[in-house]
Design a protein around this nucleic acid. Structure first.
Length: 978
DNA sequence: ACAGAAGCTTA
DNA sequence: GTAAGCTTCTGTT
């Protein structure tokens, strides 16, 4: 072990008890052998080995050992015979698991360390010290407070069950003292479980206070007479000896004469077949599958290990886990694997190795080459072709790919080996109109001709970051890019939810430990900003070279994780193919009628102005109506209306809901404010903003879809957002009439009916819901009928409305508070509804509880198609944060599965239309709706094809228990088609 | 010039 | 109660 290495020490004994008590259901193998703690232990080890770099610290172990207690008798019993004397025997069903857990450790190819006369904690202290002396770092896998005295600059702790790092600040936060004072604190507080006496009546808060005051235990005992509180003074004086003996008991021994050195802990690749044999013997099917996927082993071909388990009734000695392991694998233990070339590594180890190497790799901007002539470019193309993998990135005049003009492009075929090809950089300052083209640049036509064979070469994988941008730009210049990988999307598939940003800067920081040069630092900001073609070529080369170098290195780190974590098919089927599909949709754009919008804008302006005057009349003064602060002061301050709620910043809330309630009580002003807000919202966000987005060349509106900005797998739409065009009110729908088909064409809108409830019915497998969807009945009416016993025929609309709100609530991870809010009813009443619902649909409650448990266990949830959404705060101790995460975790598989289904439809759509001989073009996606434009004559023939693709989109990957239903309509504008 | 809060639009 | 993006106002840089 050397400087920079990282040692992981797992507190095996501590973990056994925690895993046992944290897993409520008694997990047993089919023969009745209890294995819950073993399962928890194996999952934890696997997660640590595969995912270590996902932790906040982003550390990867180079050395690894699992430490156990040998027996309950240690040198501490010589100091204090009562030490741990009142500890009761372990629970009966835990006893056989001690040996199994040691065997599990060996199956993982990890050293299993224990020593007579010492506790695991002493061994951990000793190894942490040894690692520190050779310059290495240590992470102790435990949350035991007894180990916190070891925390320091090179030693941290990690709690795998709460996914929490424990460093110096966390110790101070929890105990009020730094780690080096933990010994004195424990000496004062004692420990009833371990029978460490301490000083009676002194708890952690008081102990921290005293240590703060006196510095340390010796000072405290020496100057105890200075303590002001009489009773406290006396007990400390009386118990000084107890405190001293307690200190000896809690002080960990860091000089145990250990037999194994740190070299023995070097982390080896797990032996797939051996591990799988053990996991199969334990009947851990999920983990077996994961390990098989990650190690490339064929689980079906590996026989379960034969087991001989020492049962509780035959156990002997104080600690049944001690001594000989209770279980032997049938096959011989192989020799530890020696260093193997990279090609032989499993994906999980490969990605770990690469993550480590990537952090170590240095960036040198001066090493990037500016390609100034065609022969040099051709040499680079040849080198990239030879490498088979090349990162590619465009530099352009604007961020909008529909407007962007190419300034140059960059290539990298190995870490540190990057070049930039300036094509259109201009001379001097940007003020001078058309500041002439610089000399020594390859002509755009020549450069494109040179690069085209590379970008189209089927044997060369192009690595892009947010490839939709580069693909769109290059397609506008007539070039296609295939095949390609997209590092942004790989990161999104792996880490949706763990991190909200998958842009180059964030990924570089996280995975390479490298702060990427900011775009703004190159082009300037605000008024003085210039477009990239006005950046000096040398500077541009440093920037563009760095970007593409980062992209290539990220790919090397992230790509193997897809296989290691079983996410290849999500990436290859749901993400990567959508890049091309969306690029095409964005380039097509949609036609809008600017006259309609401009006329609407005028009307809205007039009506808003009229309302504005009336508002001033009623208020008795002129003020900024759009300022909630001023409005709140006038309504609830000066006018003295009964104010309802305050916002979290203490301002009066003036939401539409509050104003509507006031209006219902007969106040006129709030009504006018609500109306004014609606009109100005429509005007500013839609009628005025949309025309500004019409592309001068195409005369159409081109939105941009973001593939990686939601946690659940939905797309989002920006600049402009075409996924929130009004529809609910008549006034708002007028906006939709401005979205029109081109001359001689029709728009087709096709939307899924109740897709999320159908997904829920499938996932939770609820008989009544499945039947209702099979029968094609009104699902909300059916729900109401089940809940309230009201027949569907002649059902009052209010009853159905309530059931509908509950159905939506279920999808959103229902709470009584939220449902009460939605229906404007008392929370108790909402609570009753929910109770009644769960009585009628107990499977839904089970499903929700199982989803929460899965999320707590794994930190993420999965869609039907295997997409993951991470909720790292699901185990937060703050009940509000935890509840928020639980609701989100319940919603994500439902919303995400629906998102996956429409993604699958979109990926297949263009080919299906082409195959049917139809010319319809897919233009927009609004979560459960697709908008097409087609020739009028083909509209009728197009709809059944679209419907079929959408309704069968889950197949063949998943056969849903319920049919999907799609409604399609054709019309001249979006309002009528919808 | 930018950031956060409040509010409103969609599925 | 889920998931988003955009505009306005307001206070800070």
């Amino acid at each position: 072990m050397k400087k920079g290495d990282h040692l992981f020490l797992v507190d095996g004994s501590g973990y056994i008890f925690r895993a046992y008590h944290a897993l409520p259901p008694l997990t047993r193998k089919s023969d009745g052998l209890p294995v819950g703690a073993v399962a928890g232990f194996c999952n934890m080890l696997w997660k640590l080995m595969v995912d270590a770099r996902n932790t906040d610290a982003g550390v990867v172990p180079t050395h690894f050992a699992v430490i156990f207690d040998y027996s309950s008798k240690t040198f501490r019993n010589d100091l204090y015979p009562e030490y741990k004397a009142n500890r009761s025997a372990p629970p009966e069903d835990l006893i056989p698991q001690f040996g199994l857990i040691r065997e599990a450790t060996r199956a993982f190819n990890l050293p299993c360390i224990e020593m007579e006369g010492y506790e695991a904690d002493d061994l951990i202290a000793t190894y942490a010290r040894l690692a520190c002396e050779v310059g290495g770092d240590t992470t102790i896998i435990s949350s035991d407070k007894d180990l916190m005295q070891l925390v320091g600059p090179t030693v941290g702790m990690y709690d795998p069950m709460k996914d929490r790092q424990i460093g110096i600040p966390e110790v101070v936060e929890k105990w009020g003292v730094p780690p080096e004072k933990m010994i004195d604190l424990q000496a004062l507080t004692g420990d009833s479980i371990d029978n460490v006496p301490g000083v009676p009546g002194i708890g952690p808060k008081t102990a921290a206070l005293l240590l703060e005051q006196f510095g340390d235990l010796d000072q405290l005992l020496e100057r105890a007479g200075e303590i002001k509180q009489e009773k406290r003074r006396q007990t400390i004086i009386d118990n000084a000896d107890n405190a001293r003996i307690s200190r000896k008991l809690v002080t960990l021994k860091n000089d145990v004469p250990v037999s194994e050195g740190l070299e023995a802990f070097t982390l080896h690749e797990p032996d797939g077949p051996k591990l799988i044999a053990f996991l199969k013997a334990m009947e851990f099917s999920t983990l077996t599958r994961r390990v098989a996927e990650a190690t490339g082993a064929e689980a079906g071909e590996i026989a379960a290990a034969t087991v001989a388990v020492e049962r509780a009734d035959t156990a002997h000695g104080p600690d049944v886990g001690a001594g000989q392991p209770a279980l032997r694998l049938s096959d011989e233990e192989g020799a530890p694997p020696t260093a193997t070339p990279e090609e032989g590594r499993t994906p999980s180890l490969l990605s770990a190795l690469r993550a480590e190497a990537a952090v170590a790799g240095k960036f040198d901007a001066a090493a990037y080459e500016a390609i100034r002539d065609l022969p040099t470019l051709q040499r680079w193309v040849a080198a990239a072709q030879e490498a088979g993998v090349v990162a590619f990135d465009t530099q352009t005049t604007t961020q909008d790919p529909m407007q962007a003009e190419l300034c140059g492009f960059a290539l990298a075929f190995a870490p540190g080996r990057a070049a930039y090809v300036p094509l259109a950089h201009k001379a001097g300052d940007g003020d001078l109109l058309g500041g002439g083209l610089l000399q020594n640049q390859v002509a755009v036509r020549d450069a494109l001709a040179a690069i085209q064979p590379l970008l189209a070469d089927a044997s060369v994988l192009k690595i892009l970051q947010n490839g939709k941008f580069d693909l769109t730009v290059m397609q506008r210049y007539g070039l296609d890019i295939a095949p390609f990988d997209d590092t942004m999307l790989i990161s999104y598939v792996l880490d949706a939810g763990t991190s909200s940003h998958h842009n180059l800067e964030a990924l570089s920081q996280r995975w390479l430990g490298h702060t990427a040069t900011a775009f703004k630092d190159v082009t300037g900001t605000g008024k003085s900003a210039v477009s990239f073609d006005h950046v000096a070529v040398e500077r541009a080369t440093a920037y563009a070279g760095e970007e593409v170098d980062i992209t290539l290195r990220l790919w090397r780190v992230l790509k193997p994780r897809l296989a290691a974590e079983g996410l290849v098919s999500v990436y290859e089927r749901l993400e990567r193919p959508l890049v091309k599909t969306l690029a095409a949709m964005e380039q097509r754009g949609i036609s809008i009628d600017r006259q309609i919008l401009s006329r609407l804008s005028g009307e809205l302006a007039q009506r808003a102005a009229g309302l504005e005057e009336e508002v001033y009349q009623h208020a008795g003064e002129r003020f900024t109506i759009g300022s909630p602060k001023q409005l709140g002061d006038i309504l609830f301050g000066r006018m003295g209306l009964p104010g309802g709620t305050k916002t979290k910043t203490g301002q009066w809330s003036t939401t539409a809901q509050v104003l509507e309630e006031l209006a219902a009580e007969g106040h006129e002003l709030p009504r006018k404010i609500v109306d004014w807000r609606q009109l100005t919202k429509l005007k500013s966000t839609y009628t005025d903003a949309l025309p500004a987005h019409v592309d001068p060349q195409t005369m159409r509106v081109h939105t941009s879809y973001s593939l990686a900005s939601t946690t659940t797998g939905r797309l989002s739409s920006v600049e402009p957002n075409l996924q929130n065009i009004p529809v609910r009110t008549a006034e708002g729908r007028k906006i939709r009439t401005a979205f029109i088909a081109g001359k001689g064409n029709r728009l087709i809108s096709a939307d899924y009916s109740q897709i999320e409830l159908r997904v829920l019915a499938h996932m939770a497998n609820i008989p009544q819901l499945v039947q209702a969807f099979a029968d094609g009945v009104d699902i909300h009416a059916m729900t109401a009928s089940e809940m309230f016993g009201v027949p569907v025929e002649g059902m009052p609309s209010e009853v159905r409305r309530r059931a509908k709100a509950i159905n939506f609530g279920i999808i959103y991870g229902i709470s009584a508070f939220g449902l009460a809010n939605q229906l404007s009813i008392a929370r108790e009443e909402a609570s009753d509804y929910i109770k009644r619902y769960f009585e009628r649909f107990p499977g839904i409650r089970d499903y929700m509880e199982e989803t929460k448990a899965f999320a707590r266990e794994n930190g993420y949830v999965e869609t039907i198609f295997g997409r993951r959404a991470h909720y790292p705060e699901i185990r937060a101790s703050n009940p509000s944060i935890r509840a928020n995460n639980e609701r989100a975790a319940i919603n994500a598989p439902i919303q995400g599965s629906a998102a996956d289904i429409i993604r699958r439809a979109m990926v297949r759509m263009d080919a299906a239309l082409a195959k049917a001989g139809l010319s319809a073009r897919m233009l927009l996606q609004v979560h459960d709706e697709l908008i097409f434009e087609t020739a009028e004559a083909e509209a009728e023939a197009t709809m059944p094809v679209v419907k079929a693709v959408m309704e069968n989109a889950a197949m063949p990957a998943v056969a849903l228990r319920v049919p999907l239903q799609v409604d399609a309509r054709a019309a001249l504008n979006w309002d009528e088609a919808h």
